[in-house]
Simulated assay, not measured.
Amino acid sequence: MRAPLLAAAAGVGALALLHVRDPHVDGAYGFCPFLVLTGRPCPGCGGLRAMNLLTRGDLAGAVSSNLVAVSLLLVAAVAWLVWFQRRARAIPAPYLTWSARTVTLGGLAIVAFGVVRLTPWGAWLAP
Rank of each mutant, 00 (worst) to 15 (best):
114 G>S: 12
26 D>F: 12
120 P>M: 03
101 R>G: 08
107 G>H: 10
95 Y>V: 13
65 S>W: 03
9 A>R: 10
28 A>L: 03
35 L>R: 05
1 M>T: 15
91 I>S: 12
6 L>Y: 11
76 A>P: 07
83 W>H: 09
79 A>M: 15
14 A>W: 02
94 P>V: 11
77 A>D: 02
7 A>E: 00
90 A>D: 02
97 T>P: 15
52 N>Y: 06
94 P>S: 11
63 V>D: 01
46 G>V: 13
2 R>A: 12
17 L>Q: 10
18 L>C: 07
59 L>V: 15
116 V>T: 15
32 C>Q: 08
53 L>K: 01
73 L>C: 11
51 M>L: 15
111 V>S: 07
41 P>M: 06
16 A>F: 06
77 A>M: 09
37 L>V: 14
91 I>E: 11
50 A>D: 02
105 L>G: 07
1 M>I: 14
10 A>N: 03
125 L>F: 03
106 G>A: 05
33 P>W: 10
59 L>K: 09
125 L>V: 10
31 F>Y: 12
92 P>H: 09
21 R>T: 00
120 P>T: 02
114 G>Y: 06
70 V>E: 01
73 L>W: 07
127 P>V: 08
91 I>F: 05
24 H>V: 04
111 V>D: 08
82 V>C: 02
57 G>R: 10
54 L>E: 00
50 A>I: 06
70 V>Q: 01
66 N>H: 03
17 L>S: 13
79 A>Y: 04
3 A>D: 08
57 G>H: 14
2 R>P: 12
37 L>A: 12
33 P>F: 02
36 V>L: 09
123 A>F: 14
110 I>R: 08
92 P>V: 11
116 V>P: 00
7 A>S: 05
107 G>R: 03
62 A>P: 08
66 N>W: 12
74 L>W: 15
126 A>L: 07
7 A>V: 15
31 F>D: 13
34 F>V: 11
66 N>C: 05
47 G>P: 00
42 C>I: 09
38 T>Q: 06
120 P>G: 12
33 P>H: 10
86 R>S: 06
90 A>W: 11
8 A>M: 13
119 T>D: 12
127 P>A: 11
1 M>V: 07
101 R>S: 07
32 C>D: 15
35 L>Q: 09
59 L>C: 14
